[in-house]
Structures are given as structure tokens and as C-alpha cells.
Design a protein around this nucleic acid. Sequence first.
DNA 1: CTGAAAGCGCTTACAG
DNA 2: CTGAAAGCGCTTACAG
Lengths: 343, 343
Amino acid sequence: MKKITIAKIAELAEVSQATVSRVLNGYVHVRPEIRERVQRIIAETGFQPHHVARLLASNHSNMIGLVIPSGPQTVFIDPYFLALTEGISKATNQHKQTLALFIFHSLQEGHDTIQSIINTGMLDGLVMTADMKDGTLIPQLIAAEMPFVLIGRMEGLDEIHYVDADNLEGGYMATKHLLDLGYTRIGTICSGENKSGDDRFQGYRRAMQEAGIELDMNLVYFGDYSLNSAYNGMKKLLPECPEAMFVSSDTMSLGAIKAIREAGLTVPDDIAIVGYDDLPPALQAEPPLTTIQQPIYETGRIAVEILLEVISNPRQQPIQTILPNKLIVRASCGALQRGNQPQ
Amino acid sequence: MKKITIAKIAELAEVSQATVSRVLNGYVHVRPEIRERVQRIIAETGFQPHHVARLLASNHSNMIGLVIPSGPQTVFIDPYFLALTEGISKATNQHKQTLALFIFHSLQEGHDTIQSIINTGMLDGLVMTADMKDGTLIPQLIAAEMPFVLIGRMEGLDEIHYVDADNLEGGYMATKHLLDLGYTRIGTICSGENKSGDDRFQGYRRAMQEAGIELDMNLVYFGDYSLNSAYNGMKKLLPECPEAMFVSSDTMSLGAIKAIREAGLTVPDDIAIVGYDDLPPALQAEPPLTTIQQPIYETGRIAVEILLEVISNPRQQPIQTILPNKLIVRASCGALQRGNQPQ
DNA sequence: CTGAAAGCGCTTACAG
DNA sequence: CTGAAAGCGCTTACAG
């Protein structure tokens, strides 16, 4: 199978390579009849330009990378990244970009990856995920002038492009919902592991404060997003008799529910929970929890849009987008409203 | 920031570009002192070869693709793909390959993607996922002589490289386990959607047959891997009073459990279930199910190994690997053994 | 073991 | 609007 090149197309169409290249790239200044002739030949032959050659000549690749950290074990099981990747993929498909995926399993690997991405010059830009513990990766990118968009936010990095969910609002909405149902003794299992976790906790605080309820640290537990941490946390909080809980990730809700069950109590009859993340149905807790739904998919999509904008138009003001969350009220809440009022 | 090229290294080391290229590529016939000199300069300057140029010149890219289909809605939420991707990523990292991810959301997109991968010449090879409904993609690859490895198997495609879990054995093990516990009225929710589903069902049949129990189609329901299908299926099977169930995916187990709960029964006290997939703890059913654990991660890793082998050494006999499953007995099974014998 | 040079398949000033 | 030609940064016969 002979690879067909631009030279052959030029020959068949009786024009120069330059002209073929121009119609390929949609330049405007090509005589219509010639354009059509070339296009016909291209269609007939099924020719597609060699991506790599184009890339070398033009110095951009139509390829962007997605960088995801993975913990020591298999942490890439988080459906969050799936939804994100799906959104990103949809956007890259749509823009005819190709998506390179970089999962690193240690900080060292992360550094090497980034360095090699930079040196190798094969990517136009990067979508970075915020939750890497190390603040070193980002400066590396900035120094190399590699365009990137951060998903989420990081402390101390204000002058960069990012898209994030409004986590503070999310925590606020969740807590407010519980308050509106009449609860006052509302506990929380949250996390100080990253900015998102902080923000959600701040949202909780604000809602409580607005309701005139003083912060009771005995009702607050900081987990690490793992099921187990939440399980332990819930066991610790149970003696404090919370009527309701705001748990700041879906995985942690599962841990909390487990502890509640083991104590012989049930959700939501004894303790109402509002969760976070709104996983796809197949992965949801049983009973289905009222949750804050993050626009994860949308976040990915928008990150790509921003990145492409930044690539084609460098050195502009930071583009920073914050997307709202949605409160999804499920059956468990109905139960509460039916009169399972706090003791 | 001036991009540093092989020419500059050659200049600094006072050798030709060809020589630099040779040490870069680890050729053996370079005088040690020169090799060292060049390597020192490379290290000092932090030079890394331009990936794309190398690619154009050498005609291979050190980049492999992973092709995943996604349903009309967000179906890429399946943790299966996460584990798979993680395994693949680990292997590509290790071999210094870069991973391009192609998720397509329609068959049309799938075709376009494959076509463009082929024409564009930017990938050395592909890891294909078997569950695309359409048998057209694979022949397309074969025709283009694009190296690929299939994860899973497809009917009628025998002469290709693949790695798969031993699904028949999995279904057999699951059912056998239930039989060993003393159950005889064992139902199944399986799936005819793909070969894996078929195989698991065949495993169920074989185990039942070996136990001398005739196949009772009233105890068999074919779902489509969705939670809902299994939910409906379980509701249908419940009047048949199965003592135990083999459910052929974890997501479907959740649906089955839901139906069982709604009927006022419990797992495993009233109905024992063996599931399939063995999701990570955070995503498991509650109560934790005894399941067949697929070597998903390993599957991904091995697929990459095979692919690289095939790329560097084309036109060889099909490499076909079938990995065994593992039966993971969880608490729910303990309960059964404690004497929750069938009625 | 080493170098000079052609070539990978495009894009893009430059000149007209 | 169009073409001839240089160039992107490497690799790889070929010759020595």
C-alpha cells in the first residue's frame, strides 16, 4: 500500500505542492476552479496529509495532552477522571485534535513526563489536573512557555488559566439544603487535602454561620477522600449524634453510610446525608443520596476550549471560569420531608 | 528560550550530526570516548531530541493509541476502562511510549478516527477494545496493515493478536462456588451483548451441567450490562425463587441487589450472589459481594507488551493470551457458610 | 567507527 | 492567485 503524498496530488491536479497545501489548509486565495480540482483529486484518492510531516513543518501538532496523577496504588479508579476525560475527549474530537494521555504514578514520573513533553515538542498544550500534591509541575510549564489550562485551582497560582467548579457554593448549597429541612445539628466529613476540599468546607461554614449556628468542631472530620477515612470519621462523629451530614465526596459518602449501618442506624431515617460529585447511577450509593452535582463533563469540555483559544492566541489575560453546581434531590430527601424530623 | 537541536550538540562535541544521532539511539559502533563526550554535552545542555522530527525521519513514533468506544450517553463511566487504561498507561510509561487516547461516541466517529489514525501515520500501533458493536473497524486496520492488539475477543476474528480474560472459566468458577455451598436453584443474569457475556454464560451452563442440574431458562435473564436491565431481570426472576444468583457484571449486581431489596429480601441471607469484575472497594456493592476478579490491569499491561513486540517484529503468528480469573470470597459468603442454607 | 548528504512530507516566506 | 525553493530536526544508507 503506497502512501500517497502531497506531491502526487500536485502532479495529478497539475499544480504545485504549495497550492495543494493551501487548499488543504483552507487558505482563501486560491482560484475556485483550481480549489475544486484539487479537492476532487483529494477526495478521489482519499488522501490525508501526513500528520507528522505537517507538524514538523508547521510547528504545531493539533495534539493536546491530559495530565493525570495517580497515587501509589491504582487511584485512577476515580470516576471523576472518567467523566472528565470523556468531556475532554468529546471536545478534542470535535476540534479534530488528538488527545495524548499522561498518567503518572509518582512525582518523579510526573516530572519526567512534563520535561519530556516540553522538550519533545509534540504537544500544542496541556490540560492539567490540579490535585497533584506538588506545586513544581506548574512552574515548570510556565518556564517553558507551554500553554496549559488547569482544572481546579491551586493556592498561590492566580495568573494562570483555569476552570473550576464552584466548590464553596457547592458546600454551601448542600448545607443549606439540610438546614432548610429543619436540621441544626449538621456534621461534616470534608477534606483539607486540596483547595476543592477546603472550599467545600468553607461553604459549610458559611451556611451554618448564616443560619446563626456556631461552628462545632466536634461535628467536623477531615478525611482524605478515601472510603476508609470517611468510615473512621463517621464512627468518630456518631457519638456526637449528628442529625444530618454533609459529606464532601461520593466515595466518602459510601464510607459514612457503612459506619452508620454498622451502628444499627439507617440513612436517611436516622441521619440525613448530602453527598458530593453525583456519580453515574451505576456507582451511586444505596440508598441514592441527595448530592451536589459537579459539572465535571462540562469542565473538561470548557478546559479544551480555553486551551485551544490560548494556543492560537498566546500571552493574553488569564481566562478563569468557575462553573456552578447543581443540587440533585433524591428519594432519600423525600423521606426526610415526610416527617423524619430530627429528634 | 532557544530550542536546542542535534546540530548544536554536534558542534559542541565536534562530531557530526550522524554521530550524535547514533549515541542518541544507542548504536554500538561508536568509540567510547566519543560516546561519552557526546553524552556529557547532552546531559549538560539538557538536550532532548525533537520527537516529531525524529518521527518523520525514522517513520515510527513511539506512540501507541488506545481506542475506546463510548455509548450515546456518557458510557465511559465504566471503571473497567479506568483500570484498563491505568494498566496500559503504566506499561507505556515504562517503555517510554506515549499514549494517545481515542474515545469515540458514535460508529461514524469511530470510523473517522480509525481512518485518520491510519492516514495520518502518527501511531505505531493500537490497543483496541473489543466491545464496539461493529465488526468493521478491525478489518479496516488489517487492510491498512496497522499493528494492533485486541482486548477481548470477537467472533470470527481468529488470526489476530489478542489478550482476554478467561470468561468461560470465570462463569464456571462463580457458579461452581455457589454449587459447592449447597445451592441448586441458581439463577443468572448475564448478557449476550458480546463474547465475554456469552462465555460467562457458557461457564454457568457447564458448571450446572457438571452438577447434573438441567438448564432452566426460567432462571436465566439476559441483560445489557446496565444496572437497570439487571434490576428488571431480577424482578422477573424473583417469582421463580432462585436461592442464589450468578450476575455477570458488577454494575448488574447493583441492579439485582436493588430489586432484591425492594422485594423485602436481603443479600445474602435470602439470596446469595456471586458477581463479576471486582471493582475497587470504593465502587463495590454493599454488602460486599463475592466476585470473580478479572485481571483487568494486567490485561492492559500485557496488551502493550504484545503490541510493542508486534510492532518491532511484524508478520508473525498471532499472539493470543488468555488470563485466568480469581474468585474473591467476601463476607457475604461467610454468612452463607455459617448456615444460611437454602430453604 | 565516522561523516557528508539525501530524504522523511509537509509549510511558508519570497518573488512574481 | 501561484510556483520554486528553503526549511522543520532528525535518521540512515552509502562510502570510506
